[in-house]
Computed example of a mutant assay.
Amino acid sequence: MSLISIVTPVHEPALGFLPEAYAGLTAQTLPDGWTWEWLIQVDGGDGSEVPAQLLQDHRVKPSGNRRGGPGVARTMAWGRSEGELVKVLDADDVLPAGALARDIEVLMSHPKVGWTVSKVLDLMPSGQLVHYTLGDPEHGVLPRGELYDYWSTTHRPAVHPATLCVRQELLSRAGGWMALPASEDTALLMALDVMADGFFIDVPGLHYRKHAAQTTAHADHREGPEWRARMSAIKKHAEALRR
């Protein structure tokens, strides 16, 4: 049986979103011979905080760590993973039907592609789904280095890093997620982009929840000394890997 590992960091304010994320996971239909495991990592907890109804499913594997932020929690969850593919899923987001199957099918049919991303729909507080775009690329292969070149001039990733699915081996060579207070998902995407071709799936692969408590709503997310340090760290890592 082939395995795809779903990696989800969560902190206390987002625990209430997990049942909806789980519903999206259980609605997935995977290709024959595949199954999933869900590695929930509670940042600043021990895993016992995960809603009890989720723990009846043996595929749900909670744990925790000393508070270290989202990058640390993601890497700790990944450290427990056993799948040949690793899929990111934030606690407050939802996978629409077919998302995992599309990731698997692309990576199994394109052996030189190391990772996938996809189109996103924003999930608004009203429940409405709104198309999110930074100028989506065309469906198909994303040549190595193309996204990083765009990010270098705009500091915007061109595709949504919250949709990432990556080969376990490639993620290991990238070193997992950087220990940043935010943008750790963009940092990983830029690292992967300079290491291997990717693939953009022109079908919505994520319902990205918009709410006031999300990390991207913080005042330091897009400007100031913290932002400059994050951008510099991302660049140093990607440039070193590119060389």
Rank of each mutant, 00 (worst) to 15 (best):
145 G>Y: 07
192 L>M: 10
105 E>H: 11
190 M>D: 01
193 D>L: 10
103 D>F: 13
197 D>G: 06
102 R>W: 15
167 R>I: 06
148 Y>V: 09
122 D>N: 05
125 P>G: 01
212 A>V: 15
128 Q>M: 02
101 A>W: 12
134 L>F: 08
112 K>C: 03
213 A>N: 11
181 P>E: 07
172 S>Y: 00
99 A>K: 07
103 D>V: 12
103 D>M: 09
100 L>F: 15
114 G>A: 02
171 L>G: 01
118 S>W: 13
173 R>T: 07
110 H>F: 05
212 A>L: 13
163 T>F: 14
178 M>D: 02
101 A>I: 05
148 Y>W: 15
190 M>I: 00
150 Y>R: 11
209 R>L: 13
195 M>T: 12
193 D>C: 09
209 R>G: 13
116 T>K: 05
195 M>R: 12
149 D>L: 14
122 D>W: 11
162 A>P: 10
136 D>M: 08
187 A>C: 09
109 S>G: 07
194 V>M: 09
113 V>C: 01
180 L>H: 06
106 V>C: 10
104 I>R: 04
166 V>S: 05
126 S>M: 04
117 V>F: 09
108 M>E: 14
164 L>M: 11
210 K>E: 06
196 A>M: 11
182 A>D: 14
160 H>I: 14
207 H>S: 08
102 R>Y: 15
171 L>T: 04
140 G>M: 06
105 E>V: 04
172 S>C: 02
195 M>D: 08
193 D>W: 09
142 L>A: 04
183 S>F: 09
195 M>E: 07
182 A>Q: 15
113 V>Y: 02
190 M>S: 07
209 R>V: 08
162 A>L: 11
211 H>S: 11
174 A>D: 00
136 D>G: 02
114 G>Y: 03
110 H>V: 00
134 L>K: 02
177 W>S: 01
121 L>F: 14
154 T>V: 15
112 K>I: 02
113 V>H: 02
191 A>V: 00
145 G>N: 05
132 Y>Q: 06
143 P>K: 07
101 A>G: 11
181 P>L: 03
194 V>C: 04
118 S>R: 02
99 A>H: 09
134 L>S: 03
172 S>N: 09
172 S>D: 06
150 Y>P: 00
186 T>E: 11
184 E>V: 03
187 A>I: 02
136 D>E: 13
207 H>C: 08
203 V>G: 05
150 Y>S: 12
191 A>Y: 00
186 T>I: 13
147 L>W: 12
131 H>T: 13
